[in-house]
């Protein structure tokens, strides 16, 4: 009880900084996810009907996820220097797989009869994609974007190690100041606000998903 009240005291004393870090954290995550979304949907559409390319691309995206996150962040320092940019680059690579995989799965799930009838009515390849295939795959793609967002928000905490902003600053400070006053409070600020941010963003995306999914597809 005492620990909890001392945490609240710490938070209320530092709320301006915490809020600023949370916003920075959200910004880094969302930029990475946005870039990954554009890239992955485009790539997914290109490879979905090409078995070889599709296997290669999905395997590559899978391998990216297995690279230790700390190492991946560090790999970009020679390219982008230190700061938020190498962090965004690394997070972007992580976010690709869930969105790419769901784009491919979503397009796979479109009934062949629907595509056949679209083609049979004279919709061009582009019209088939934009008016039929993507709208029908959208709920699955959106689910991929939500997974990527949750994943990214968690890993963004590491950005601090390559000179980036975000709630990772509190975790790092807690680690280096282990045992000193407020170290525990800082650790929990990092954990609690990262989790809360993830939940809030997921909720926002769930609402977006609902309103961007065609009415005939909603359950």
């Amino acid at each position: 009880m005492e620990a909890l009240s001392s945490w609240f005291t710490y938070v209320s004393a530092n709320i301006d900084y915490i809020w600023e870090s949370t916003l920075a954290h959200a910004r880094i995550s969302l930029i990475a996810v946005a870039l990954a979304t554009v890239f992955s949907i485009t790539l997914g559409v290109i490879v979905q009907r090409r078995p070889l390319a599709r296997t290669i691309v999905l395997t590559a995206a899978g391998i990216l996820l297995t690279i230790p996150s700390l190492a991946l962040f560090a790999l970009f320092i020679p390219v982008f220097g230190i700061g938020n940019t190498p962090a965004i680059a690394a997070l972007y690579l992580y976010a690709i797989l869930p969105i790419l995989r769901n784009t491919v799965t979503g397009l796979d799930s479109v009934s062949p009869a629907v595509v056949e009838s679209a083609r049979g009515m004279g919709l061009s390849t582009w019209q088939q994609l934009v008016k039929v295939r993507l709208p029908l795959a959208w709920p699955v793609i959106m689910t991929g974007i939500r997974v990527a967002t949750l994943l990214t928000v968690g890993i963004t905490a590491i950005a601090v190690l390559v000179g980036g902003d975000g709630l990772g600053t509190y975790v790092q400070s807690a680690l280096t100041r282990n045992g000193l006053p407020n170290a525990t409070e800082q650790l929990y600020v990092g954990v609690v606000f990262t989790v809360a941010l993830g939940l809030v963003l997921d909720l926002v995306l769930a609402v977006v998903q609902r309103f961007t999914t065609a009415k005939g597809l909603r359950l």
Partner: peptide
């Protein structure tokens, strides 16, 4: 063009 599986646009 009419096919057996109909293929209406569900959305």
């Amino acid at each position: 063009y009419v096919i057996q599986q109909v293929g209406l646009f569900p959305h």
